[in-house]
Simulated assay, not measured.
Amino acid sequence: METLIFEIQIHASPEKVWSILWDDISYRQWTTAFTEGSFYQGTLKVGSIVKFFDPQNNGMYSRVEKNIPNKEMKFLHLGEIYDGVEVPQDWGEATEAYILEENEEGTLLKSKINTSDEFKGFFEEKFPVALEIVKNLSEIQL
């Protein structure tokens, strides 16, 4: 398991960045960096299961480990979804966290990913693009 950290300074409030990250319409916009047409189902309450899908009903499912509004969201990835069917995976502590730190310039958004070598290259390629989209959406929709 390797920890990857990506960060970007955004000239918007943590509340604005949070809404861009998790509101349905803007979530679908910034996650196009990973897969066009991405969306999630479920609630973001701690302990709940969230399913992340592509348009073909494939994706992964995760448990919400932490949800402190406007500050931090953390998921533990549990398995993959194929044609809507959940397939558990032994990924250990495969987590994905979004940490928002308010500062004088707005918000520093950090993404901290614990991942296996299998997914490292994907995250290194896609996450900076995704964060740039979050930045653009947050700053133009003030």
Rank of each mutant, 00 (worst) to 15 (best):
G59H: 05
F123V: 01
E124W: 02
I81G: 07
W22P: 03
G79S: 00
Y61V: 03
N70A: 08
N67V: 06
P69G: 06
S38N: 07
Q89H: 04
K126D: 01
K74L: 08
L108E: 00
I133G: 06
K110W: 01
F75A: 02
I133N: 10
Y27D: 08
I25F: 15
M73I: 14
H11Q: 13
F52K: 05
E139K: 00
G37N: 05
L109H: 01
G106E: 07
V134W: 01
D83I: 07
I113E: 01
D54V: 08
T3Q: 04
A12Q: 04
I49A: 04
E105C: 11
P128W: 03
K135T: 07
K110V: 04
F6N: 01
M1T: 11
V64P: 09
V46K: 11
F127N: 06
E105D: 12
V85F: 12
L78I: 09
S48H: 02
E2C: 12
H11I: 09
K16F: 04
N103W: 04
R28C: 12
I99S: 09
L21K: 05
H77Y: 09
L78W: 06
I49L: 03
K120I: 06
N57W: 10
F34Q: 00
E118W: 13
D54A: 15
F127C: 11
K110Y: 00
K16A: 03
Q141C: 08
Y61L: 05
G42V: 04
K135W: 00
Y40F: 12
I99P: 06
K74R: 13
R63W: 02
S111A: 12
E93P: 02
E72D: 00
E36W: 13
M73S: 12
V17N: 05
Y82K: 15
T95Q: 08
G47E: 01
E65N: 11
E72V: 15
F34M: 13
S116D: 07
A33R: 00
